[in-house]
Computed example of a mutant assay.
Amino acid sequence: MTFERDHRIDFFRGLALIFIFWDHVPHNPLGQITPRNFGFSDAAEIFVFLAGYAAVLAYGKILQRDGYLIACVKILRRAWVLYVVHIFLLAMLMGIVFFANSHVETRDLVEEMGMHHFITNPQQALVDELLLRFKPNLMDPLPLYIVLLAGLPLVLPVLVRKAGAVVAVSLTVYLLAPWFGWNLAAIKDGVWYFNPVVWQLLFVLGGAAATHGQRPRLPETRALQRQPLFISALVYVVITGVITVSWRWPEIHDAVMPGWLSNLLYPISKTDLSPVRLLHFLALAYVTAKLLPDSGWTRNWLAQQCCRMGRYSLEIFCLGVLLAPLADMVNAMTDDAFAMQVFTALVGAGLMALLGAWLEFNKRLTAPVQTVPVN
């Protein structure tokens, strides 16, 4: 099996990072156009699924070329880098939040960001930070990715050959975890906001999609047989979108939503990745993949900016985490709130794109020079 890069993965990873940044800035008007406003899932599902896809794509290639031991070492080394980045990012985020809090008199940003634990018990907070137990707001996706990536060596050899078996085991764990209350301990609320025991399913499904995408394409006649699946997925995406939009008008939602359906749907847990959230994301991903094949549209200039951010997702994510409280501070200090909120949202996305461009340029500068032998 040859692992080839799908440029749509980079594009949607970059787009998800922009959506995460916009969602993390309170009262941001551009946050109204992110996926969470039009369906049960949001950018977090995109981020985790594509993280699994990209990880299996990259380390599956290393597994085939260099063997299991080298692939394991590189995976764990990457997880260690992410862990170190998490520690430094949290320290920088706390500094920025404390600075922003001193300039905003109407709100307690430290409390909103879940950092009072560090003020009341700094020594324990440092220990909890090292153990990934202390995760202020905005920081949750990175520890989740660290844990999922660190567990990848356990399943990678089977995943690239028998993806169905790994998905079956992963699905079983996903179904049992809420029943038995499986989760990791944390300070806030006592458990991880993104329960890695259930979110691992999305990561595994991303990896399985990567292995499936490397197989020869089905003939067009067989592809047509899947049309009912596409229609079913599209209908589900539309219906859930209508339900989500109706949340803005509770009286209308309560009037048109049957009681039995409300009891079936709610509560929609993000922590335990409710089945309706998972199904919505999978339907949305399937519809998007069918409507937007990798046919060259990712080569236009605007798409290239998103692709570049997706290729350097760790650095771009960290920048977005640091920009969010700064944008919130600037918005809170400005009289013309709407205009400034739009401005800071666009500037933040622009800075993320600039960082991606710089990282791409720096990579070219440090690339080894190809020498031409002289006869």
Rank of each mutant, 00 (worst) to 15 (best):
L63K: 03
R222V: 15
Q370A: 10
V73N: 09
F99Q: 09
A255D: 13
L302Y: 10
Q123D: 14
D336I: 14
D6S: 05
N28E: 09
E129W: 10
K74N: 11
R65I: 15
T106H: 14
V97N: 01
G207K: 01
V372W: 05
G356N: 03
V158H: 07
T106C: 07
L156T: 01
G241N: 04
T120Q: 14
F203M: 04
M309V: 03
Q124R: 13
P219H: 12
G31K: 03
L69Y: 10
P136T: 06
L17H: 00
L229D: 13
V256F: 14
R65P: 06
M113W: 05
F98L: 12
A208T: 00
L148R: 00
G95A: 11
E251S: 11
R77V: 08
A125F: 03
Y53Q: 03
G207V: 03
A283G: 04
R78P: 03
L159H: 01
A209C: 12
N362F: 10
W179D: 12
Q214Y: 07
G95M: 08
L278M: 10
L76Y: 09
D189T: 11
D140W: 13
A210C: 14
K188V: 12
H24S: 08
D10T: 02
I243T: 04
I268Q: 06
A332E: 12
I46F: 10
L264W: 14
P143S: 09
R13W: 02
V276Q: 04
I87W: 09
Y145D: 02
P141E: 07
P267R: 08
E315P: 02
L205S: 02
V81T: 13
G95Y: 07
V369A: 12
P216D: 12
A223Q: 15
P153G: 07
Y193C: 06
L234M: 12
R65G: 09
V110A: 07
V166G: 02
V155C: 04
W192F: 11
D128M: 07
T371F: 08
R217E: 15
D23L: 08
L76E: 06
H24E: 05
P250L: 09
N362A: 15
I62W: 05
W22F: 08
G207P: 03
D294C: 04
D335W: 14
M257L: 15
R311Q: 09
A283E: 02
Y286A: 04
L76F: 10
I20G: 02
M139F: 08
D10A: 03
V166R: 00
D140R: 07
Q305L: 09
G181V: 05
Y83L: 10
L355N: 05
S170W: 01
Q225A: 14
E360N: 11
N137D: 12
A233N: 02
A91W: 14
N183S: 10
G310Q: 01
L202G: 03
P368F: 06
R311V: 02
L130F: 15
A185R: 14
M340Q: 13
I231M: 14
P373L: 07
I243S: 00
